[in-house]
Design a protein around this nucleic acid. Structure first.
Length: 435
RNA sequence: UCCUCGGUAGCUCAGCGGUAGAGCGGGUGGCUGUUAACCACUAGGUCGGGGGUUCGAAUCCCUCCCGGGGAGCCA
């Protein structure tokens, strides 16, 4: 048995393949069956005068997504999609498939999401999930090459790490527990143990967000590095993204092109990615507010950026932009305050270009025990469940920084797809956990 | 939670007070190289549920359910 992706090595030879019927076309006494085996699509040609009646009749009656075994001669042919086709000699029906719902025609998003398990078979989803595979492997390679240790965080946690945001509550024997929103608090101790660490795990957010940038379950990559300051943290994020973007352009050009089909501005988007280089732009929160005010948007220092504000900022630049040093008042307790300006913290958001919004959020962590205690008190968080976290500041505290990056948002930005629900095999959305 | 758009054939949609429509998909037939093939014929409907207005409601009003897009929040 041969896979379709290997066929170029079998030109001129007889082979046997198994696969699903992707589509069927006919013309007079010729039947064209498009066979899909997961590694590619192959056109199988059945000619009435060259094979027996039974085989031809079977080819003529095949249903979409029926499983078949085909044998025949592999030939190069420019008329075939992919350049290689099969002159079929024999055909066996292994399993039939009646009334396959996803026909080669347009469908609505509700219909497709309800049939996600079948939708995965279509070419666009193939391209996207192949890019996802390459992207995730590349992230691992990037950190592996730099000596980072992969440390897996727990997904069942006793408390929230950032307090306010909504958590999924679960029953834990006779107690309550929560699904993790972030592995960060667990990466900081790991950084004290191994120096350079990262994790890649799902994070869960019970926010009732209904936008193209939100999932209730997403894959969260979080590096944490000892003896690294905010500037170093941004440089790490920059190097990482460049490495991953370059790799995708290199290894998945066909998939990126397919995904750009029928998408307005996709050529410009790919050119932008090809030209992507260091350094990304850096803009302090304070300067960003000034910039927005100069653009006629009224806002006070201290207010948060909304989607509109972020879009205005990212549209000003042709590369991703780091916005750093946000007001301390609305920052999570673990972010380190800036010695130069105690009203701000040493953190950053990375806004992707073209309105994709925030894909990375990071910070230098507060390493002063007293300041951290004060921040916990100020935000009215319970101290007792965080004692273990405070131990890091008691037993050899150290300067350290890290960030979190969402795999789905990053993939959406690189591939140019509009909604992140297509960038994960089985998206979990508000009011949608099937299939 | 709020704002907004929508629910009509298996799918995508048109119809928006007066006999339920198209394209695709299904079925049948035709065509010796098709590229979401094409051509002809054909079957297929409780117009999301309930209530109301009207001589008459898919169409107007109320209500509920379901879905899309967005806001807040975030990766």
């Amino acid at each position: 048995m041969v896979w379709i992706e290997e066929l170029k090595e079998h030109v001129g030879k007889e082979v046997t393949l198994k696969g699903w019927v992707y589509n069927k076309r006919d013309s007079g006494k010729v039947r064209f069956v498009l066979l899909r085996d997961g590694t590619g699509i192959l056109q199988c040609v059945f000619v009435d005068t060259e094979i027996d009646k039974e085989t031809y009749g079977l080819a003529d009656s095949l249903n979409q997504e029926a499983v078949v075994e085909v044998s025949g001669l592999v030939r190069e042919d420019t008329r075939a999609p992919g350049g290689v086709e099969l002159t079929a000699r024999s055909l066996k029906l292994i399993a039939d498939s009646a009334d396959y719902p996803i026909t080669p025609k347009e469908h609505g998003i509700d219909f497709l999401l309800s049939r996600r398990h079948l939708w995965l078979r279509s070419s666009r989803q193939h391209a996207l999930l192949r890019c996802r595979d390459t992207m995730i492997r590349t992230f691992h390679e990037f950190f592996g090459d730099r000596g980072f240790i992969l440390v897996d965080p727990p997904m069942i946690t006793p408390t929230s790490c950032e307090g306010a945001t909504t958590l999924f509550e679960i029953k834990y024997f006779d107690d309550v527990a929560y699904l993790s929103q972030s592995g960060q608090l667990y990466m900081e101790p790991a950084a004290a143990a191994f120096g350079k660490v990262y994790c890649l795990a799902p994070s869960f957010r019970a926010e009732k967000s209904k936008t193209r940038r939100h999932l209730t379950e997403f894959w969260h990559l979080e590096p944490e590095v000892a003896f690294l300051d905010l500037e170093g943290d941004m440089e790490l994020a920059e190097d990482m993204l460049l490495f991953v973007v370059k790799r995708l352009l290199e290894r998945r050009p066909d998939e990126l092109k397919l995904l750009g089909k029928k998408v307005e501005g996709s050529e410009e988007h790919l050119k932008l990615l090809e030209g992507l280089d260091k350094p990304f732009y850096r803009l302090s929160y304070t300067d960003a507010v000034k910039m927005l005010n100069d653009n006629g948007i009224k806002m006070q220092w201290g207010e948060k950026f909304g989607a509109d504000e972020e879009a205005v900022i990212s549209r000003e630049f042709d590369r991703p932009v780091f916005v750093h040093r946000y007001p301390k008042a609305s920052a999570p307790f673990y972010m380190k305050e800036d010695h130069a300006d105690p009203d701000v913290v040493l953190n950053f958001d990375l806004l992707a270009s073209e309105g994709y919004g925030e894909i990375i959020g990071g910070s230098q962590r507060e390493d002063d025990l007293e300041k951290l205690k004060a921040a916990i008190q100020r935000q009215k968080l319970p101290r007792e469940p965080l004692e273990w976290y405070l131990d890091l500041r008691r037993y050899g505290t150290f300067e350290h920084s890290g960030f979190g990056i969402g795999m789905e948002r990053t993939l959406a930005w690189i591939t140019g797809v509009h909604h992140i629900r297509e960038t994960i095999p089985y998206p979990r959305l508000i009011d949608r956990i099937y299939p």
